[in-house]
Design a protein around this nucleic acid. Structure first.
Lengths: 245, 245
DNA sequence: CGTCCACTTGACAATCGTCAATAGCAGTGG
DNA sequence: CCACTGCTATTGACGATTGTCAAGTGGACG
């Protein structure tokens, strides 16, 4: 592991980095865009990207800032959110290892992102990456498939936000997080929740209080157990029925 | 105009078609994916796609059906929606001329689509189109940019669904439709609304009644005028303030 | 002219939000 | 070591926005 580990908790920038990557040994490779590349192409990426570390609560980038870089998350969890002028907040997603940040490829960030845990990313200049896409159609194709899939997930989230009750929203959220962690760590009834109740509420269009109430209700009814930094699913069937698309 | 106009209102299939397109004279070309192609590439498309017409209320395709085709809308308006097992419905979008249907490129449709007005589309086989993408990186790049933009819009819709009041939702919807029509017909205070109040409600996570009440309230307060098949915006400023970011 | 829908409007209900108090927990520094 | 601070989570009482139910209007079309 050749990346430095020094970090800053304040500010919103670099927290230890070195030039160059080590894609061959990347834990998150099979989950990432990079998977589209041939071994020989990795040299390109290795030279042109860099590894960065972020401390919990630090900012990766902010909405409306000029978007100089795109990122690929290799470790940790990130909260992606939009703010309304009056301070209301909508979390549009949580990024986990393997997730690509910067799909919009727009000149300015369309949302803010900050670290929920310690986070490691591969960073590439946006314009450089865009050029790379034009040279490597396979990479572009992979990125497009990822974007299409994200779009589909966003539409699922619309259903959750627009047409589901608080109870169903929480169930759908837990089932969703479970299946995302399954791709990373393998299936388990233990669902890590690195985000706060407030974050969950802002993701589901609920208040903290409602999130808390629903979770304690599920716990009281023995559908889940609340554990430090997550939940354990006892009645997966019930949760899946509530979440049922 | 060489496409036939015979239509069926029932069923969910073809309603008059002929093989081959006429991309050069397509009204919606500058709005569409196809814009990425060189003149000589159009021959490919012309041979390989076909024009279809659909009557109002007819079905273009249904959720979970095998997705044999992708479509590019050239005329009319289409409602895209997902159904929950118990009949609740979430409209995930309204397609207008220039819009591409089938971004997900998945084997099965992720939502249903039906015509709100008379509709004309260019149809391509999904696998054929997918192959074409691999042969024409420029087309792929354009499609990716469209998908990325759609993703960004979907995230905006999440904010509307999760964190806005009924009043703000309606305002945001009207302003949004206005700017979409502007790209097609040029800017105007007249906003055509080919969908029902129920559709608007299912798009915004509201009931018909709430939609109706908000629209009549805006009308009573002289912010809009309700006209057949749409509204006319009187107080654009107020609407934009309510819809703000 | 009558039927069918979409739309509107009103009365009432309920889910979920607001406000407030308290508990729990981690980190900090005397 | 422990009090102090600040943040997150929980819980309760109350309120309001929005949904539900019901009735009625009006326009389109056969």
């Amino acid at each position: 592991m050749s990346s430095e580990t020094a970090e800053r908790t304040a500010g919103h920038h670099v927290c230890g980095h070195h030039s160059g990557l080590d894609c061959q040994h990347c834990q998150a490779r099979h989950l990432s865009v990079c998977n589209a590349l041939e071994p020989e192409d990795f040299d390109d990426l290795n030279r042109f990207g860099r590894t960065l570390n972020y401390a919990p609560k630090s900012t990766l980038f902010e909405q409306d800032e000029t978007a100089d870089n795109v990122l690929n998350l290799t470790e940790g969890a990130v909260r992606l959110y939009k703010l309304l002028p009056d301070g209301r907040r909508q979390v549009v997603g949580f990024a986990l290892p393997g997730d690509f940040l910067g799909l919009a490829m727009s000149a300015r960030n369309v949302f803010s992102a900050d670290a929920l845990t310690h986070v490691t990313v591969c960073q590439f200049s946006r314009t450089g990456f865009s050029d790379l896409l034009d040279r490597k159609p396979k990479l572009l194709r992979r990125l497009h498939d990822i974007a299409s899939h994200e779009l589909s997930l966003a539409q699922d989230q619309m259903v959750i936000l627009g047409r589901r009750t608080a109870e169903e929203k929480i169930a759908a959220f837990l089932i969703g997080m479970r299946s995302r962690w399954a791709k990373i760590n393998g299936a388990s009834v233990h669902v890590p929740l690195p985000m706060t109740r407030q974050d969950i509420g802002d993701f589901l269009g609920l208040t903290v209080e409602t999130v808390s109430r629903m979770l304690t209700r599920f716990a009281r009814e023995k559908a889940i157990v609340i554990v430090p930094d997550g939940v354990r699913l006892l009645d997966v069937d019930r949760m899946e029925r509530l979440a049922a698309s």
